[in-house]
Computed example of a mutant assay.
Amino acid sequence: MIENRPWLTGFSHLVLILGVLVVALPVWVAIVASTHPANAFGVGHIPLWFGDQAFANWHQVLIGKEGQASQVLRMTLNSLIMALGITFGKIAISLLSAYAIVFFRFPFRGLAFWVIFFTLMLPVEVRIVPTYEVVANLNLLNSYTGLTLPLIASATATFLFRQCFMSIPGELVEAARIDGAGPIRFFFDILLPMSRTNIAALFVILFIYGWNQYLWPLIVTTDDAYYTLVMSVKRMLSVPDGDIEWNKVMVSTLLAMIPPVLVVIGMQKLFVKGLVDAEK
Rank of each mutant, 00 (worst) to 15 (best):
S94H: 07
G110H: 14
F106H: 09
M82P: 03
F88G: 05
A100K: 14
L95A: 00
S97R: 02
A92D: 00
G110W: 11
P107N: 08
T87D: 03
F103V: 12
L84H: 09
I86V: 15
P107M: 10
T87W: 02
I86Y: 01
F106Y: 15
S97N: 15
K90G: 13
A98I: 10
A98R: 06
P107H: 07
I93C: 05
S97M: 07
T87E: 05
F104S: 14
L95I: 12
I101N: 01
S97F: 14
I93R: 05
A83M: 06
I81E: 05
R109W: 02
L96S: 10
L96P: 06
G85W: 07
G89H: 15
F88P: 05
T87P: 05
I81V: 09
F106D: 06
I101P: 03
P107T: 02
A100N: 12
I101A: 05
S94L: 07
G89N: 04
G110R: 13
L84I: 15
G89Q: 03
A100H: 04
A92P: 02
L84A: 15
L84W: 13
I81R: 05
T87A: 12
G85F: 00
S97Q: 11
I93L: 06
Y99N: 11
R105W: 10
G85D: 10
F88N: 04
I81Y: 01
G89V: 01
F106N: 14
T87F: 03
G85T: 11
R109P: 09
L84V: 14
F88K: 01
S94K: 01
A98K: 12
I101M: 04
F103K: 02
K90W: 02
V102G: 00
V102D: 12
V102I: 09
K90E: 14
P107R: 13
I81P: 06
Y99L: 10
A83S: 02
I86T: 10
I81K: 01
G110Y: 10
M82H: 12
F104P: 10
R109K: 10
I101H: 05
S94V: 15
F88Q: 10
T87Y: 08
A92F: 10
L95S: 04
G85E: 04
G89D: 01
I101Q: 11
A92L: 07
G110N: 12
I81G: 07
L95P: 00
I93M: 07
V102S: 14
V102M: 09
A98C: 06
K90T: 06
G110C: 01
A100Q: 10
I86P: 01
A98W: 13
I81F: 01
V102Y: 00
F88V: 14
F103W: 05
R105K: 15
G89C: 04
F106V: 15
I91K: 04
A100E: 14
S97H: 05
F88H: 12
F108C: 13
V102N: 09
A100G: 15
G110P: 14
F88A: 11
A83I: 09
L95V: 03
R109N: 07
S97P: 06
I93H: 00
L95N: 03
I86Q: 02
A92N: 00
L95D: 03
K90A: 12
L95H: 03
R105A: 08
R105S: 08
T87G: 00
A100Y: 02
F103N: 11
G89R: 01
Y99D: 04
A100L: 13
I86F: 02
F88W: 11
M82N: 08
M82G: 10
R105H: 15
F103H: 09
